[in-house]
Structures are given as C-alpha cells and as structure tokens.
C-alpha cells in the first residue's frame, strides 16, 4: 500500500535521511522508532508529501505519490500531526466535522454528521461534542483530533493513516486505546504508519517496526527481530533487559540500573 524506495532527503549539505526503504501492506500497523533527531518526523512528512524527497520514490496504492492531487489524497489518507494548534474557538463537533469536508459540498450531509458522531463515540469524547475545543485539556484535544482524522477516512475501503507520536500527552489507558483503535482500523484493510517513542507500545501493537538511526534504517522487521538488546544499545546507547510479555508473544524493554553514573 505504501512503498518507500531508497528515499533520501537533505537540507544544504546535511543528510537527514539516506537510502530509507520499507513497505507497509494493507492490514498492517507499521511503527517508526528511533532516537531524537533520527529523522522519524522527516520521513513521515515525506510520506505525506509535506516535504519533497531529494532522491528515491514513494508510492501509494501502486502509484507515485506525486501523481495524486491534494483532493484525491484527502479522501483516503489522513494525518494526525504531532502539534495541534487551533486558533479560533471551534466547537468539538465542528472540528470533527471538518474531517468530513473532503467528502461533502458546502454543507455536510446527514451521513457526515453520523460519521462525526461515531468517530467521537469511538474515541470516547461524545459527551464533549458541544464543548469549545480550545478549553479542553491536551489529552482530550488529542483524542478529538484523532476523531477528526478517523472521520476523514471512516468509510473508505483502503485508507492510510499516519500518526505522528499520537500518544503524547495521553494517560496510560488512552495511550493503549489510541493504538488499539489504530489496530482496529488496520483490521478492516487500512494501513497505519505510527511514529512511537515507547518501544514497549511498538512491540505490543506493531506488525512491523522500522528502527531509524541518524537518517538510516538500522533494523526493520517484526518486533521480535528489531527489539533486541544489541540494536537498542546501538540506536539509543542504552543497556536494557528484555523480558517476555506475560500473555503476548512480544518482547518488553526494561532499562538497566545505574548505567549513567559512571559515564559522566
């Protein structure tokens, strides 16, 4: 569904991404992880066409990403940005309905209202529908934005969902609910690309993990193959223990004790 081939991106002489290649299939949740400044957000921006690659090719649904118009992309591709700033005091319901704009003419149809309502219920924010968005807490705002993004591609057969650090500002319950939701959408044939910081969340929910280190792919594959003591040591410069998840077949990362004290 999303195919990234040998993509590179540079500003002046600084290479931010170099030869990144991966492929995300329908029904898959792909997590992008890596240290700060490894190029995760840049990679996501290239995939959403916010930036233009210096080299390589990105294909969506077997067509080059540049062959689509904004309008065509907006009906099956949705992006949840890392930072959400809304300037005017819109109602929560108005904001979620904005996700339906690509599908409606001047006024939303009855079906658009219905989708907005379902999306709000899905993220558990239905009771907040007639509140003013800017008065909500950070985590609540994030969930409303998720509802808007889900509403945008709610009823397309093969949608693609980009989430840039979606768990920021969410409590433990809602972090897991956020990823559970992304997983639920992949099960109906969507593809989700998620930037994550928490390796345990990535290990638990991702079908495929792309581990970036200074602009290059360090490791790619199933969680068991990517989340290893060696790779984490190389990418994050951190010594960890790995334990087995009590009920799932995935590793969990536990940092070792006192590893910074002798370094400084």
């Amino acid at each position: 569904m999303l195919e990234v081939r040998d993509i590179s991106y540079q500003i002046r002489n600084r290479k931010l991404l170099d030869g990144v290649t991966f492929r995300a299939n329908p029904g898959e949740l792909l997590a992008i992880v890596g240290s700060n400044g490894a190029g995760k957000s840049t990679l996501l921006k290239l995939c959403t066409r916010e930036l233009k690659a210096s080299g390589g090719e990105i294909r969506l649904l077997d067509k080059g990403i540049d062959t689509y118009s904004e309008k065509e992309l907006s009906v099956f591709r949705a992006v949840l940005p890392q930072q959400n700033s809304v300037v005017f005091p819109f109602l929560v319901s108005e904001l979620v309905l904005m996700g339906r704009y690509p599908h409606s003419d001047f006024h939303p149809s009855e079906h658009d209202y219905f989708v907005a309502e379902m999306a709000l219920k899905k993220v558990g924010m239905w009771e907040f529908a007639s509140r003013v968005f800017t008065t909500l807490s950070g985590g609540e705002q994030q969930r409303v934005q998720l509802a808007r993004v889900l509403a945008q591609i709610w009823d397309v057969p093969r949608g693609i969902l980009f989430l840039d650090e979606p768990t920021t500002g969410l409590d433990l319950l809602h972090q897991h609910q956020m990823l559970e939701l992304a997983r639920e959408f992949t099960q109906k044939g969507f593809c989700a690309i998620v930037i994550l910081h928490d390796l345990n969340l990535a290990a638990q929910y991702a079908d495929q993990i792309v581990m970036l280190r200074s602009g290059k792919v360090e490791a790619i594959g199933a969680p068991q193959d990517v989340i290893t003591v060696d790779i984490i040591k190389r990418v994050f410069n951190l010594n960890v223990w790995l334990v087995e998840h009590p009920e799932m077949d995935c590793p969990m990362v536990i940092p070792q004790q006192n590893q910074f004290s002798d370094r400084y």
Binding site: E50, V79, P81, V87, F88, E94, Y101
Partner: peptide, 17 residues
C-alpha cells in the same frame, strides 16, 4: 470551508485537500 480547515494549521489544511 477552506478557511475553517486553515484554522487547523497549514499542513493539516492541505492534508484535507
């Protein structure tokens, strides 16, 4: 409609067409 979407930020507006 376009001005409404711009309230979400320039990049989100373009993601919404």
């Amino acid at each position: 409609k376009s001005l409404n979407l711009l309230a979400l930020g320039e990049s989100q507006a373009s993601m919404l067409g």
